[in-house]
Amino acid sequence: MKPLTLAILLVLSPALNAETATPTALIDTFAKLFGEHKGERKGHAKGFCAAGEFTALPAAKQFSQISWLSGATVPVTARFSMAGGNPKAPENSRSPRGMALQLKSPNGELQHFAMLNTPVFGAKDPDVFLGLLQSSLPNPVTGKPDLAKVQAFRQANPSTLPQAEYLQKNSPPWSYATSSYFGIHTFFLTDSSGKEHKVRWHFVPVDGVKGLTDAEIKAPPTDFLQQRLATRLQQGPVHWTMQLVLGEAGDTETDPSQSWPASRTTLDIARLSIQRQGDDACTGINFDPNVLSTGVRASSDPVLQMRSPAYAISFGKRLTGQ
């Protein structure tokens, strides 16, 4: 077989080019992709803390045995962030934004949320995600990724397309306050009768969704997201409505690259209120989305399950200045 033909096959065939993902491999690849930034988060490196409150709405009554849906006002520590491992990421880029939350109920239970402003994740499982990252590594000669290689990998692995297409069709947020955030994984909530419900969650901004204009996207990179949230907070708290999307039979539980049908029943179950920027209040928090309170169970989604050990490695490196 000619070398060129073999090279093309290696790119186009996931079976030939596959590597089993491990937490260490994912973290190491992030470092190769974004550079070494000691003491920073390896993913969502650029971000800042905020604080506020979380209160259940009447529709949450059926889940009132879950501590943060009992009706009591729960304090929230939050972090808003850019995706990726670049602490100087351009804030007008077509890349995901994140909102992470830690709720602390009166009984001491913690509940974490780690969400994106895209309704789906960038790959169906850790192996494909690792392959996508590796296909995006810069060429050692040019210092830039080979876009043809990235495109070939995406075409050979269609689960990498929905998030990319969403980012191209939807403008990046004008402010963190004017963005929806999606819990891209499936969880199970137990109601007061003991019945489990398959759910995904969605935080909808009360201020409405607003994106950057084409001119702002094409403008030179600049930092504005933290200042715009600070300016908005001078007017009062920023609110999101937490919607619970109820899954049905046949809706995927394990593939975060797939959306559920838009026709699914949704419940407005809570109100998130961000009241202030939080200095370094979130610095010591590892926003592992598998930190769940009683009555909430994680699905077997392999991406969700991989996040705990990968986050732990990143957290350990950050605490030790690596």
Rank of each mutant, 00 (worst) to 15 (best):
P106W: 11
D146S: 09
P289Q: 05
D207P: 02
G52S: 10
L132W: 09
A7E: 15
P173V: 04
G278T: 07
T118A: 13
G211S: 06
G131V: 04
L116N: 05
K124R: 14
C49S: 15
Q305R: 05
A310F: 02
E36I: 05
P302A: 12
L246Q: 09
T213D: 02
P75Q: 09
L292F: 13
H185L: 01
Q234D: 07
L229F: 05
H44C: 12
A156N: 05
F287Y: 03
I217W: 09
L57D: 01
F153P: 04
Q234A: 11
M82L: 15
V199T: 09
A31F: 09
L12W: 15
P3K: 12
L57W: 10
F188S: 04
I8F: 10
A177G: 09
T254L: 13
W240K: 09
I274M: 05
G143Y: 11
Q62G: 03
S70G: 14
K61W: 05
I313A: 14
A51S: 08
Q163T: 01
A60T: 00
L26I: 06
L33S: 03
D251H: 14
K144I: 00
G250I: 06
P309L: 11
P237L: 07
A31K: 04
S67N: 12
K32Q: 04
K195A: 15
L189H: 13
R79T: 06
S105A: 15
A21Y: 05
D207R: 08
Y176P: 00
F54D: 08
D223L: 00
T5P: 10
T29P: 01
R228I: 01
N290P: 02
G43N: 04
G284T: 00
K2D: 13
V120H: 00
R200F: 03
H202P: 01
L233E: 15
S314N: 06
I184T: 13
Q102Y: 08
S300N: 11
L101R: 00
G43H: 04
A45W: 14
V150L: 10
A18L: 00
H239F: 12
I217M: 05
L57R: 10
H197K: 09
R97M: 08
L103A: 06
T178P: 04
A21V: 08
Q322H: 14
T73N: 04
P302I: 14
Y166T: 00
I66M: 03
Y166F: 15
E36W: 07
R154F: 00
R297D: 08
L116D: 01
Q151R: 13
M306S: 02
A72F: 03
P90S: 13
S180Q: 04
Q65D: 11
G321A: 10
P119Q: 09
G247Q: 01
F187E: 05
L189A: 04
S13H: 10
G183V: 02
K198T: 07
Q305L: 06
A262E: 15
M1W: 14
N286S: 05
T55A: 11
